[in-house]
């Protein structure tokens, strides 16, 4: 099992577009992916968009990405990267 804790820094937090990217990416891996909001302890299946959206993780909240399975390391690294890169959407301080 791999665990990475990261801060959501993009302005809109884990909204639809960001969540879609994250879930798409998570779906590429065989490993199970779980997201946990550190402040509330709420968890969600990282492969379920409805679950991820329901986390309602806003800018500034910290989440833990937990992966488990044959490709857990690659999965954890890739997902961490997406969050750190602000879901590839902030050009420089765009709306989305």
């Amino acid at each position: 099992m791999q665990e990475r804790t990261v801060k959501i820094t993009n302005r809109l937090g884990l909204h639809a577009r960001a969540a879609a990217r994250l879930v798409r990416q998570a779906g590429q891996f065989k490993s199970a992916v779980e997201l946990k909001r550190e402040d509330t302890g709420q968890t969600a299946d990282g492969k379920s968009i409805l679950g991820v959206l329901l986390l309602a993780a806003a800018q500034g909240s910290r989440i833990t990405i937990r992966t488990e399975g044959p490709d857990e390391e690659r999965a954890a690294a890739a997902l961490l990267q997406i969050v750190e890169e602000k879901f590839g959407e902030e050009a420089p301080d765009g709306l989305f």
Partner: peptide, 14 residues
Amino acid sequence: YILDAHLLMLEDKH
């Protein structure tokens, strides 16, 4: 991305 989110909802196993 809106349509993409809808597609993901329809794929959502839960």
